[in-house]
Design a protein around this nucleic acid. Sequence first.
DNA 1: CATGAATGAGGTTTCATTCAT
DNA 2: AATGAATGAAACCTCATTCAT
Lengths: 192, 192, 192, 192
Amino acid sequence: MPRTKNQYKEIRESKKTLILDTALELFANQGYYTTSISKIALKAGISKGLMYNYFESKEELIKEIVYKGIDELLTNFDPNKDGILTNEEFEFFVHENFRVLKQNIHYWKLYFATVMQPPVHKLIQEKLMELLPGLLKTLVTYFKQKNVANPEAEALLFGALMDGISLNYIIDPENFPLEVIKSMIIDKFSHR
Amino acid sequence: MPRTKNQYKEIRESKKTLILDTALELFANQGYYTTSISKIALKAGISKGLMYNYFESKEELIKEIVYKGIDELLTNFDPNKDGILTNEEFEFFVHENFRVLKQNIHYWKLYFATVMQPPVHKLIQEKLMELLPGLLKTLVTYFKQKNVANPEAEALLFGALMDGISLNYIIDPENFPLEVIKSMIIDKFSHR
Amino acid sequence: MPRTKNQYKEIRESKKTLILDTALELFANQGYYTTSISKIALKAGISKGLMYNYFESKEELIKEIVYKGIDELLTNFDPNKDGILTNEEFEFFVHENFRVLKQNIHYWKLYFATVMQPPVHKLIQEKLMELLPGLLKTLVTYFKQKNVANPEAEALLFGALMDGISLNYIIDPENFPLEVIKSMIIDKFSHR
Amino acid sequence: MPRTKNQYKEIRESKKTLILDTALELFANQGYYTTSISKIALKAGISKGLMYNYFESKEELIKEIVYKGIDELLTNFDPNKDGILTNEEFEFFVHENFRVLKQNIHYWKLYFATVMQPPVHKLIQEKLMELLPGLLKTLVTYFKQKNVANPEAEALLFGALMDGISLNYIIDPENFPLEVIKSMIIDKFSHR
DNA sequence: CATGAATGAGGTTTCATTCAT
DNA sequence: AATGAATGAAACCTCATTCAT
């Protein structure tokens, strides 16, 4: 009996996920340029040739990984999408951000390794330019409502801080006191 | 008759500087792995072979660039090396840091592109592990004297913020309001 | 549908043999260091890259050639492996040795060119250290039974002679009277 | 005061000897192709450029070393050059040969490493073709006078044996019983 | 006589990608 | 959907040799 169309689709999708996950792990731990297609295929238990059945090129592969990662992040963030942050939502956002960081440490390693590498950089740049403004706007609105002197700058500062913490946490996850830092951020930026 | 030792020394030093500067610019703008020795040699106007008269390997080259950069930073920081920061010194530190950032934007691009790339990462890790503790200790002392609740965490938070700002500034130097952000940092962390 | 495992195995084996044979001939006639991987690939009618699908490095390639040669020799020698040589077996050994010499003159050229070259030398040294003692012991036993005064030295002398003859024969195969020399060895060392 | 012509000549000659000796040692221990001109210059304490003041090329350098070695050997051998070997002269020859071997082990290492390497081989071939026949003839005369059945073959056999012993001694000088072997050769070939 | 910076050809090796099966 | 042999461009690196001084 031949497989149904659905079965084929399932096979394709699970294999694609397998490749993406394997590649993400290797890219994050060994770097993009030092991770060869061969290594990924070997670790994923498939042939090199098959890789090209799922991804047009190595570049396409990392592109998909990065886009998928950004989407995952954004889905979990600001769930009701009303553009307004209450205190509770702000704190939830901070908590959520660090939860995602901890949970997807592979992805974030890759993200930082990637975002600064010129040839790969432009892959992300575009996607970020779409998404960041909305996020920023929500934050600005939040800080305005808090009567902060310069809400735009405050939002950027807050964003930079989140980046910096992520960077430092990822470099040495064992020794970075993420929970303590989290409380301090809430103190400094909730302006209750 | 051969040139004098001094003449040779001068040739070596100026050529070495030329290579380092050229490499830094290319590494920062095109990435470490995508910048070949050939490209560097071409841009520097010398032969590929000569590169290896000055640097044992491509790895040795980036190592020297990164170490030189770190040293430059540290020379300009905490000039009297007494381990104590007054308010003035703290503010000077913040100003100084961003001045260096603006001035050495190439280096910092490279720094961030490098620090997160696993294979190159370990080159820096070692050097940082030497230097960071001293810097951190000075900051902790500073925040202790300010009666901050958790001075260790405050120091880490401050460090993360500096990293995050650098990162964001470097990604888009034109649009990032460095001066405004600077004032805010001083406000938030000088605890006057 | 991919080829069967057997088909792949056959391709690999025949191509590997092709490379080994080509490399052996070139190494023997042009020397190890003056034979480039490019030359081998060109002569074998394959691409340079493919060489590295079959051999990890040039060193690995010569290693395999040399080991294979030594093994071939030893398979043909002392077939019953009882460690005892009768007169007939001794004479057979001499005949066999020279038959192999004539037949594998390429290999022996390479062997002598290699065994004395310091950087490649150690590749062989190890293998020889494994195999020589057994061979020597068998010879010592043989000479003991012949009541030779110093059987150990006689064995070494015999070994040295075989080496020397091989060396001289290989340098100028046309003019070296291998058959006559063979009889003389048997005369001098069979001690009937 | 300028140096006299003689002083210049002395400087030139002692420096040339220095280079030859240094090169011989390195070639013998590290191989011809793996010993760079730089290494030789460094070890000899002179500049790379100066090497080319004394030797036209690397090939010219090894040529001179090899020729010099062969000459040294032949000077010490068959001193009266009458082409006739008495028993005493034959034994002296054997002794002398092994003395020279022990004394010039570097040279002999190089000799064997070289004589079999095709590209360097032809350098020696020519010189040997000049010298060997005379040596061989003397030996043939000697064996004739001993009423050996096939004096030409006996001479070749003897020559091969000397080569083989040299080869084996050089590979492992510590463990090869040169003295014992020497006596055995005299026993086997003096035909008293 | 002496230096060492500089060259350039050529070496080994890697790897994304293709393709016959 | 799947394999892995095969390619070829390009990477890093070495080194004999030249040459201005």
